[in-house]
Design a protein around this nucleic acid. Sequence first.
DNA 1: CGGAATCCTGGTTGATACTG
DNA 2: CAGTATCAACCAGGATTCCG
Lengths: 127, 127
Amino acid sequence: MVTTRQRQDLPEDADLRRADSLAREIFSDVANKWALLIIEALGERTLRFSEVRDEVAGVSHKMLTQNLRMLERNGLVDRTVHPTVPPRVEYTLTEPGRALRATVDALCAWTQRHLGHIEDARRRFEG
Amino acid sequence: MVTTRQRQDLPEDADLRRADSLAREIFSDVANKWALLIIEALGERTLRFSEVRDEVAGVSHKMLTQNLRMLERNGLVDRTVHPTVPPRVEYTLTEPGRALRATVDALCAWTQRHLGHIEDARRRFEG
DNA sequence: CGGAATCCTGGTTGATACTG
DNA sequence: CAGTATCAACCAGGATTCCG
């Protein structure tokens, strides 16, 4: 993944730059708090809309639908509508979604491992 | 890292909940586009403010200082001021910063690997 | 129950200008 | 060059309401 400015602008770089801006877009979609928390909440399970809402602390109805749509659009979650009444909508991670979840797990582990160091750094910072 | 609601609220859980909200806070700090791009840009190198700005495409002066401060506060980057004129300020990842970078690398790799799948998913989504 | 639409507020962002 | 301050614009995000 390219995260830096392009140094040149030759015509033959066109498709490279396209893939690049796409990567950037996906990165922006995914590198966001709610998306990552939702992916983490889904884990290996299949959850209903309201179950996800209950699992992800503090998420609003709106943010949840918005992010679930985005994840569905990018093929990271499957959305299944059961035509019953009342309606029942279930969400599951797709294969790419589960792969992403692995790196989110790593991020969570990193956070846990460095909690102490970060607390110290903060005390030192404002001193 | 705990990402779900607390089911109970017993007194003895107080410090657990404190660590929890701290983890949540750090997660929110770090799970953001600019922070991750900056960490990726720094990599193993030491860069000046203007060099980081040049490496991270599209970041504004303000967002850059803001995020660098945040990363410094959390002890993820070292900030060294050389008292020369004009001033020279250099940024380097700390050990925790480099550890975090490893997971960011994983995220970037994930993005690259699934670019195609995601493009397809999008086409299927809007139909 | 899940979702869309509306409104409304406040935080985030970029532009600009100024300091050391 | 690096950083801060100020201001205006914008958009994220919450609350609410209505629909299937």
